Amino acid sequence: MQASRRLFCTAALLACPGIAAASPAVPAGVPREGAGYQALPDPQPTDSGKKIDVTEFFAYYCPHCYTLEPKLADWVRKQGDDIVFRRVHVPRGAAVAAQQRLFYALESLGLLDQYHDKVFRAMHVERLPLVQDEQVFDWASRAGIDRARFMEAYRSFGVQAKIRRAQAMMEGYRITHWPMVAIDGRFLTSPGMVAEAGQVSGMEALQGTLRVMDALVARAKADRK
Score class of each variant (00 low, 15 high):
R32D: 01
H116E: 10
A20R: 15
T209N: 05
L109H: 03
V194C: 09
A15I: 15
R101M: 10
V159R: 02
V30L: 15
D184E: 12
H89G: 00
E171H: 14
M169V: 02
H89S: 07
L7C: 10
I163P: 05
A25Y: 15
A21K: 14
D74I: 07
D138H: 10
L102C: 03
E126F: 13
H124G: 01
M123H: 06
F137M: 08
G34Q: 09
A11H: 15
F120L: 05
C65R: 12
V84E: 05
R77W: 09
L210P: 01
G29Q: 11
K71G: 01
R121I: 12
L14D: 03
R174A: 15
S156T: 03
L206M: 13
P31F: 06
Y60A: 05
Q114E: 08
Y154Q: 01
A98C: 07
Q99W: 01
Y66F: 15
K162A: 11
A98S: 11
D47F: 14
A153C: 12
Q135W: 12
V194P: 13
R5T: 03
K221F: 05
L128G: 01
A218V: 02
V76S: 04
L14N: 04
H89A: 05
P27S: 13
M213R: 02
Q100V: 04
K78V: 06
S23C: 14
L7I: 12
G192V: 12
S23G: 14
G36L: 09
A197N: 08
A222P: 12
K118L: 13
G144N: 03
L206I: 14
L210G: 00
D214Q: 08
V54N: 08
D138S: 14
R147W: 02
F150Y: 02
G208V: 10
R92L: 13
A28I: 12
L216T: 01
A21Q: 14
F187M: 05
A97N: 05
Q100E: 07
G110L: 01
L72D: 01
L206S: 06
Q167N: 11
G34K: 11
W178K: 02
A182Q: 02
G202D: 13
R101Y: 09
S4N: 09
R6S: 09
E56V: 14
S4K: 09
A140W: 01
W75H: 06
A3V: 09
C65N: 05
S190N: 03
P70A: 03
Y173H: 12
P31C: 04
V96R: 11
A222W: 04
P41S: 12
D53Y: 03
G172V: 06
F157M: 07
A222M: 09
L210D: 00
